[in-house]
Amino acid sequence: MDRRETIKSLFVTSLAGGLVLQSCAPDKVDSVEVVPADKTNVYGRTPEEAKRDKDLFSEIYFTEHEIETIAVLSDIILPSNDSYGSATDAAVPDFVEFMSKDLPYHQLPLRGGIMWLDSQSNKLYNSEFVKCTHEQQISLVDRIAYPLDAKPEMAAGVKFFSLMRNLTLTGYYTTEMGIKDLGYKGNQPNVWDGVPDDVLKEHNLEYDPEWIPKFVDQSKRDVQAQWDDDGNLIS
């Protein structure tokens, strides 16, 4: 079975025990396409780089149990809301799997962290983390999600959860859905003409009147530049 499918289906099974899928709001963006394994040359790779990507995609680092745990955790970190999908809808587990091979220093903290989490949940609930009820999972997560309040004996878990939180946030907010959620509006042709007036007002700022004439007059951007002998722009 395709690895991606595996992750998805695993997640669906694990969901049955915990989260309830939220119904789709009308404008809900609930899943994304990420780079598939066979399309590694779509972003200007050199032949060596394309090969590296391909090799990484062909390896598998996490066990199914580990990836399942990553999926459950990432959806606790970013569950879906009325407008946007969850971390797994944004294929965060795939991203974490890839990063563990791309930056191997993530491997040990993630693998060890998952083991740590399972030991804790065995102690507390006599069950692996993914097999716990949602309430049990949350109660354990609450002990490691707040670095300033966590008990000293939870330190290893705090570290692990912070790493998972970081990777989940990057994994989510770098997808099409996440970017929309965030509100980033760039990466497209634009004509920058300064901070919008309402924003300037809100921040009690203005462009120095002395500076205004110096700035580019965007209505003349297509008029070829010409200068007088003293370097004054005359076009």
């Binding site: 300033l148 965030l182 980033y184």
Partner: peptide
């Protein structure tokens, strides 16, 4: 407000300590 890329969101909630918010957490 740049385009997000790898590293985006890392330790974001730590900023809360400068504005009296809660550091850490998850969800909404």
């Amino acid at each position: 407000m740049g385009m997000p890329s790898y590293g985006f969101g890392f330790n974001v909630s730590e900023m809360n300590k400068h504005v009296g918010g809660t550091v850490g957490g998850y969800g909404n």
